[in-house]
């Protein structure tokens, strides 16, 4: 399995470096009040999308499925790659934000807190969990549109829901938000991580099923 993850990073080599440079530049140059979530999400998705595109272009599934490898391991390795990109993006963001804060104390740069770190990781993991089964079903090229949808829709949807909720247009959501916001902080963090883990596990199960039934 480690070889499969490693090969994703070998293949993404140059692109990973560019994405990290892009991430650093974005943190330093653009005022960011949203914290790490959007940037970590963008970096992860750009790399996962590229990885899928390269695999499809080289028809690499033929080779991977001919090697003595479990289909399950091939699929799980892609989720691990996504998780590593996610954590790597967050770590780079945290270091860059800290360095930038010291270098440019006057500039407003969102730092990474426990809450924002968990938010970045779970948000990206959940969107990846929605995206990857579709990738295995349709392929990256056919899922281009879906890719764009997954890149932008979550932000618009979240923004819209937040605004509507603030304007009192979603009263049914109030009890839920209230009960969540009154939870003890550690419990809230663990709860969010658990929900994300369950969604990812369901996604992995679906992806394995889709990949096993595919032919190449």
């Amino acid at each position: 399995m480690s070889t499969l993850v490693l090969k994703d990073f070998w293949v993404l080599n140059k692109r990973t470096r560019w994405m990290l440079i892009y991430l650093v530049a974005m943190v330093v140059l653009i005022p960011n009040i949203f914290g790490p979530v959007p940037l970590v999400f963008l970096v992860t998705f750009a790399l996962i999308g590229q990885s899928g595109l390269i695999d499809d272009k080289n028809k690499i599934a033929v080779t991977l499925n001919s090697l003595p490898l479990r289909r399950r391991d091939i699929v799980v390795s892609r989720y691990l790659t996504a998780l590593i990109c996610n954590v790597l993006g967050l770590a780079i963001y945290a270091v860059t934000a800290e360095v930038a804060r010291r270098l440019f104390p006057a500039r407003e740069i969102s730092q990474v807190s426990l809450g924002s770190a968990v938010a970045a990781i779970t948000f990206t993991a959940i969107i990846a969990a929605l995206y990857l089964p579709l990738y295995y079903r349709f392929g990256q090229a056919n899922a281009q549109l879906l890719n764009i949808v997954f890149m932008f829709v979550p932000f618009f949807a979240l923004g819209l829901i937040t605004r509507m909720f603030a304007n009192g247009k979603l009263p049914w959501l109030k009890p839920f938000v209230h009960s969540v916001t009154t939870l003890p902080y550690p419990l809230l963090i663990v709860g969010v991580l658990l929900i994300a883990a369950v969604i990812v596990l369901i996604s992995i199960t679906i992806s394995i099923g889709v990949y096993r039934s595919s032919e190449c």
């Binding site: 090969k7 070998w10 080289n58 033929v62």
Partner: peptide
């Protein structure tokens, strides 16, 4: 051992 009519390998590696 398998050898196919195309290489099906990562071109950039």
């Amino acid at each position: 051992g398998f050898v196919y009519d195309e290489s099906f390998l990562y071109e950039d590696l």
